Amino acid sequence: MEFCDNCGTLVPAGREIGECEQCGAELDLTDKKPPQTDGGATTPTPSTKLEELPTTSSGSVKKEDAMEWLENRERPSSAELRQAVLEKPNDFTGSTFPTDISTVRLTGDPQFIETVAGLFTWIVGMEDYSRRVEINLKETEDKETGEQTGNYALYLSVAERG
């Protein structure tokens, strides 16, 4: 998938040169290189600072390193946000947890959820003819008693339309 570098809109498959249908910016995707392959398997190369962080034997990043990484994040542009989302394929079943499908999960009291959810309003704009936004917002339940907790969970993701 390719996106307009200016506005983040999905570029129709096969289009390499022209104008973005959304913002009119010039498109030139001919310089974008496919991932290197090694005998048919993609060779992963770290492309983010996150992938370069040292981990413990259990796979966790130490708090000091994680805090420094978080502190050094810059606010992404709209285009960068849209380009970062990996959609759930239309025929997908099962848990998304072990996959690279992009999902936002927030849990907490109503004030926290309502405040932080404002950071994700851009996801609503991703819904179009080829994608749909999946949203699940519900009050959480105590697993032991089955009673409502007064806290909420918000799950957001983007999926291909069927």
Rank of each mutant, 00 (worst) to 15 (best):
35 P>N: 01
108 G>N: 04
18 G>N: 02
65 D>P: 00
132 R>F: 08
95 S>Q: 05
99 T>N: 09
7 C>G: 00
91 D>E: 12
101 I>M: 03
15 R>I: 08
34 P>N: 10
103 T>G: 03
119 L>Q: 15
155 Y>H: 14
55 T>G: 00
155 Y>E: 15
93 T>Y: 12
11 V>H: 01
42 T>V: 15
120 F>M: 05
79 A>Y: 05
106 L>K: 07
75 R>Q: 05
64 E>G: 01
29 L>G: 04
70 L>M: 13
102 S>P: 03
88 K>R: 14
74 E>Q: 13
21 E>D: 13
58 S>N: 15
81 L>H: 01
160 E>G: 14
148 Q>S: 14
41 A>E: 13
82 R>V: 11
113 I>E: 01
146 G>E: 07
144 E>T: 05
146 G>M: 00
19 E>H: 12
122 W>Q: 04
147 E>Q: 06
35 P>T: 02
25 A>S: 12
29 L>R: 12
14 G>Y: 09
100 D>C: 12
96 T>M: 08
70 L>K: 13
152 Y>D: 02
142 D>V: 03
46 P>R: 10
56 T>N: 11
48 T>F: 11
2 E>T: 11
12 P>M: 05
12 P>L: 04
155 Y>N: 07
107 T>E: 09
95 S>E: 11
41 A>Y: 10
51 E>C: 04
140 T>R: 14
79 A>E: 00
27 L>H: 00
162 G>H: 07
147 E>R: 14
41 A>R: 15
106 L>D: 07
40 G>C: 04
2 E>Y: 14
146 G>K: 04
153 A>L: 13
11 V>F: 01
144 E>F: 14
54 P>W: 08
30 T>G: 04
16 E>N: 05
125 G>C: 14
115 T>P: 11
162 G>P: 15
118 G>R: 04
